[in-house]
Simulated assay, not measured.
Amino acid sequence: MTELIIKGGGIAPRRRRAQLNWLLTVLPAFPLALLVLRLWYLSRQDLPTMLLLVRYISPLGMISALFITLLSAAPAFILVLRVLGGILLVSAPEQAGRSMLAVTALRMPDWVVLLAVMLAGFTWQLRLLPTLMMLLVSIMGLTAVQRFHTARWLMLWITVVVPVLVGLLVLIFVGPGIVAAVSAGETSTALLLGVPPLLGPLLTGPVPAWAARFATHWPAVGAAFIAPFAIGVVFLRAPVLPDSAIETGPPDGPVEVVRGQLIAVDDTATTVLLAGGEVTFLDNDDVRSKTLCPEPEPPLESMVSVRGWHVEESALGWVAPTRHAGPVDPRCLGRPLRPE
């Protein structure tokens, strides 16, 4: 026990390395657990169906779905970790050696933060960009306090004037959206647009040393508990099989439209997972036509736009080409393509 505790109540490097090794061991298991749970959820908790899905579903497709799910969550994790760790470093430097949060923030390279900011700028919705700017000015101010001990006027400029100016510019840009959100009764949208620019100057300096650990560790612990559940819920609903509609029936008989998720096609049969979790095998000789059904557009939560930019749209969704919605294929509605 004496080897694990150092003078002053800190944790010895050997014990910290052991904790880090445990963390690095558990982290790779989280994506694997998500992939297994996705198949379990897709099979409606039926083991034979899950084994069939394991045989035919491409791991690359599931990894792609997981990557898309985590695309916007990873920058949030990195930036919030850097802000909370930076606040602890400047508020209670004597506790930095005993805090994994502070050590991680201290050792985080600047290029990782830069990439996280760029990725968030492209993938986050417009209503979350004021929060991104708040995190960015906070990181800039905390980094200046940690690394540079220059003239007082320069530190005041970096930690106070710059956040105030950035917040003012953001408020000028999103001002019409705030007015529209208040007029439409969308309180949450108005708060997301208007509150973060006001908090930026408050997150660039230290907090009282006695409250530093409470103000940083508890939010980090809460986010660490909530994030896996939130990511899991989103990933469990992400599509991993193409939604299809298949016309089937004997050459001289009636036509039936089968709606479901296409699992596989071999020399004799087409395997389809129905909406209720049942698996059906369609004889290829009876299959008359197939089509892919587009993913239904989720309903909009907000009708507010900021200078022509909808608050739920990201820069990546605005720049990247999208498929325009056309006439709905009747087969996707359960009707034959050519009714007899």
Rank of each mutant, 00 (worst) to 15 (best):
I5L: 12
K7S: 12
P13F: 14
R15T: 14
R16I: 15
R16W: 15
R17V: 14
N21F: 15
W22P: 00
P28D: 11
F30L: 14
F30E: 10
A33P: 01
L34R: 01
L37V: 03
R38I: 01
L39G: 10
W40D: 09
Y41Q: 12
R44Y: 11
P48W: 12
M50Y: 07
L51V: 05
V54T: 13
V54K: 05
R55K: 09
G61Q: 14
A65N: 10
L66D: 07
L66W: 13
L70I: 08
L71G: 11
S72C: 02
S72I: 01
S72R: 11
S72N: 15
A73E: 10
P75D: 01
P75K: 07
L81Y: 03
V83L: 13
L84G: 08
L88D: 02
L88K: 06
Q95D: 07
G97P: 00
R98D: 09
M100C: 00
L101K: 06
A102K: 02
A102Y: 01
R107A: 04
M108F: 00
L115D: 07
M118K: 02
L119G: 12
G121W: 03
F122D: 02
L128K: 14
L128G: 14
L129H: 10
P130T: 06
M133L: 13
L135S: 00
V137L: 03
V137H: 13
M140A: 11
Q146P: 00
T150V: 10
M155E: 08
W157D: 07
V160T: 15
V161W: 11
V162A: 04
P163D: 11
L165F: 07
L165N: 04
G167P: 01
F173N: 00
I178G: 05
I178C: 04
A180R: 14
V182K: 05
S183T: 05
S183V: 04
T187M: 12
S188I: 09
G194P: 08
V195A: 10
P196S: 10
P197N: 08
P197R: 10
L199F: 13
L199N: 06
L202R: 06
L203Y: 06
P206G: 14
W210L: 15
W210Q: 14
A212G: 06
A215K: 05
T216C: 01
W218N: 04
P219M: 09
A220Q: 02
V221P: 01
A224V: 02
F225H: 08
I226G: 10
I226L: 12
A227S: 14
L241I: 02
L241N: 05
A245K: 02
T248P: 03
T248M: 08
G249Q: 03
D252S: 15
V257I: 13
A264R: 03
D267C: 00
A269E: 12
A269I: 11
T270P: 00
V272L: 15
A275V: 15
G276Y: 08
G277D: 07
G277A: 09
G277N: 10
T280P: 03
N284R: 14
D285A: 12
R288V: 00
K290L: 08
E295Y: 04
P296S: 02
P299K: 06
S302C: 07
V306F: 05
H310W: 12
S314D: 05
G317F: 09
G326P: 03
G326Q: 15
P327L: 11
L333T: 09
G334D: 08
P336N: 13
R338L: 15
E340R: 14
E340C: 02
